[in-house]
Nucleic acid binder design. Structure first.
Lengths: 335, 335
DNA sequence: CTGAAAGCGCTTACAG
DNA sequence: CTGAAAGCGCTTACAG
């Protein structure tokens, strides 16, 4: 910029005005186009760091996910990237691995990088930090996980409702002993899915709602899924259907079911949470609950950018609808 | 920083020295600890933008991938994130979608954000821009795709060698008519895999090396995979094994094979490129070529950071070894 | 229509 | 042992 100004014998102020299209009504058109041409010729690259420092606006959003390597997160990241780009925002991301420490670390790092706002899939124990972000008036949108007790923008899905309906569908389709594998987690998506399952099971006094309900520790997911399924099958009245409450649970569960040579849906009905390209390789078309990932990502960005532009906006709490996709795996066939 | 200085009645210079641990040998220890305490108490957050501007070093690396939503890319991104974090670097990422325009755009955006260096999965037609990055002396590491004709740091895998060996293994295991589906792409991973296949087929005058070789257009991957497989099966001498040259090709191909009710490996042998959690849902254990993703990511970051720290380093061209994992899908059983 | 000057938050060579 | 001052690359209120 200095070079341009110097070359043309004008001030950097003028260069700045021209390049940013400001005051364009009272600038000599000849000089204006001269500046533009010279800028192009010299390959001028604005320094966004300097710009941000001066404007206290970085056009950067911080995205904190559980793990970018998880297909669900990766897909979401892609949507957010595209949506942010439309408004000239860049995304910096980090994976918190459900760890409170990593989460804090990421927030601090991103803050010192002066992000304009956050899109956050919270971890357990994040309440305090979230509260402090809110107190500092830093624009945030929670995705996936809702944090009760704090009024913050959030984009979530109807986990309770769709789980309830999924189980009711299984019952309607003739399954009578439906088990559920969920992650041991106090975060809303999981607790809501469990609640949906329990209410559906309890309806009309089916049987005790925790009889076939098993929580899995994410740290040893594989082995626990295997023993949980074995346990549910080796009972006096074994389950005739299984509800997997996340894509990872479904993946490991299905592998075990295939290893046991169980036939789906004849021996056991299946309903999974989250879509996955992998399901297509299973021999039986799998039923699943599809979250509207595109909409989650788009809405999160929209809400965030709005609240960056206008800090006085009321808190938005958007609950999107997941879709129940029923395939053969959830259709009981007469034996 | 100004606040701290003001509160303590000292200069910001001193605060800066203390907080950065510089000149620590000639600073009063009492003031030093006073500064540190006050900084903590006031919740001082350094502004990395200002720091970067002053130091012309942003501690940011730009990661350009084909598509962060692709499991392979997502996994790589995660490794790179972790490795970069170890050295206090933050990653900004973008998906180029194999588009030359998006690629240019991302490079420009990241440059104006003053990244210290790039990790790049190049697109077709990126040569010119890469050459200009090299001319500007901007640290870069190419991953996955090698760009012939430009001397740049690169971390790739032995695509030719491992494809050749995979096909030879299939032949050794009794398959005699081996087809290959690859993407129409002039990028090295694909061309090298094809070359490996052809050389293995040509060896000992098997048959014309392009007889069962079909290129797929990524834009309509699904439909073309289906018709390609049909074509390879409905011949006078149909194929008895298939080599899928990428994870997406394998995914769609396997779906079609399952739809056709073909038995693997009895009716058709299978070898896939790239590992995938999805493979585990297939009824027959699948053979695949596993690229060392962890090592790719780690080495890419290491090489990049080294060349950021020392611009005089010689160009590194690292070729890592992929691993051939042979399972039942590649074992011909006597009918 | 255009320029001189201050300032964003930091660092560092220089002086004392 | 510590401070005043310049400067990184930008923007913008003010003056002319």
């Amino acid at each position: 910029m200095k070079d341009i100004a110097h070359r043309l014998g004008i001030s950097t102020a003028l260069v700045s005005y021209v390049l940013n299209g400001k005051l364009s009504d009272r600038i000599n058109k000849a000089t204006a186009s001269l500046v533009k041409d010279t800028a192009k010729e010299m390959g001028y690259q604005p320094n966004l760091l300097a710009k941000s420092l001066r404007n206290s606006k970085s056009y950067t959003i911080g995205l904190i996910l559980a793990d970018i390597a998880n297909p669900f997160s990766a897909h979401l990241a892609r949507i957010i990237e595209d949506e942010a780009k439309k408004s000239e925002y860049t995304v910096i991301f980090g994976s918190a691995d459900e760890s409170h420490l990593k989460f804090n670390d990421l927030v601090q790092t991103f803050l010192s990088r002066q992000v304009d706002g956050f899109i956050i899939a919270a971890v357990e124990g994040a309440e305090e930090l979230l509260r402090s972000l809110k107190a500092q008036n830093i624009p945030c949108v929670l995705i996936d996980r809702y944090c009760s007790g704090i009024e913050m923008n959030a984009v979530t899905t109807n986990n309770y409702q769709v789980s309830y309906e999924g189980i009711m569908e299984l019952r309607r389709n003739g399954f009578s002993h439906i088990g559920m594998l969920h992650l041991k987690s106090s975060l809303t998506p999981m607790t809501e899915r469990v609640r949906g399952y329990r209410d559906a099971i309890s309806k009309d006094n089916h049987y005790a709602s925790d009889r076939y309900l098993i929580g899995i520790d994410e740290a040893q997911l594989k082995s626990e899924v295997v023993s949980a399924i074995d346990q549910l099958l080796n009972q006096h009245e074994p389950v005739d259907a299984l509800f997997f409450a996340s894509n990872l649970l479904a993946m490991e569960g299905l592998i075990h079911i295939r290893n046991l040579n169980l036939r789906v849906p004849e021996d056991i009905g299946i309903l999974c949470f989250d879509q996955s390209a992998a399901y297509n390789l299973f021999y039986c078309p799998l039923s699943y609950i599809e979250q509207p990932i595109n909409e989650i990502g788009e809405q999160a960005v929209t809400i965030l950018l709005n609240s960056i532009d206008n800090s006085e906006l009321p808190v938005q709490d958007l609950v999107l609808k997941s879709r129940l996709v029923m395939e053969r795996s959830a259709m009981k066939t007469s034996r």
